[in-house]
Amino acid sequence: MTQARLTVEDLTVRYGALQAVRDISATFQPDSIVGLIGPNGAGKTTLLNALSGFTDITSGRVRLGERDITRLSGQARVALGIVRSFQTVRLLEDESVFLNVALGCERNPQPTVVEQIFSLPRQWRARRRDLAATYQILDTLGLSEFAGRAVAELPYATRRLVELARILVVHPEVVLLDEPAAGSDRAERDLMGRTLRQLHAREPFTMIVVEHDVDVVRKLCSYAIALDSGAMIASGEPDVVLENDRVQEAYFGVGHRA
């Protein structure tokens, strides 16, 4: 169960003269699935970057529960359980699926480098724990048969799953997904949507998803936020947000990618 609620207050991110995100305030309820929608350049990725500590916040606040995490580094936020994926898959392409997923165990408390190198008792326990977690999530996502394969050899949709496994290997609090189905076809999108729902049902966490596909948003999300030119133009039930006039104009007017 996720305890903490993620909130942003008057969040602004500026790059030079460009306001990539303007005065956004929102509350992400624990264990909800929130869809972030909007045309290209609306600031969706920037918002994810600001939440995950991948970009500097110009003004405003980000809180996890009562804790102000605005100035925390990305590394510190990961330690609090805020993890993310990227629009393009970021994996160690030459390494095995197993290694890529085990990398996510960084969030478990790890023994010091000296303990690791000399294989001291704390390292044995950590290793056992991390191996078990890795095999478990591989099994859950149906990746066990690929465990020893180099990531580069696998089809795109599988690599997406590997990235997801890396995020979920240690139970997260908040998961930020940047177009998890980008570059996938219809069937793969549906599959990704179903997988996300199942994973969420099994062990809930707060999930914030950037997604272009209206159907996926409708089926997956319990809440939706629409952005345009860095500002929030609508939020609420996905069906309501998608029917909103300004959303229709900003989003579908520009032409949406199916």
């Binding site: 991948f54 990305g74 970021r90 160690l92 392409e93 390494e95 990398l103 960084e106």
Partner: peptide
């Protein structure tokens, strides 16, 4: 694993908290 992540993708490394 941290070493390999630093070599292959600093972005991935940061995203898992390395």
């Amino acid at each position: 694993r941290r070493l390999l992540a630093v070599r292959d993708s600093e972005v991935a490394a940061r995203s898992v908290g390395i």
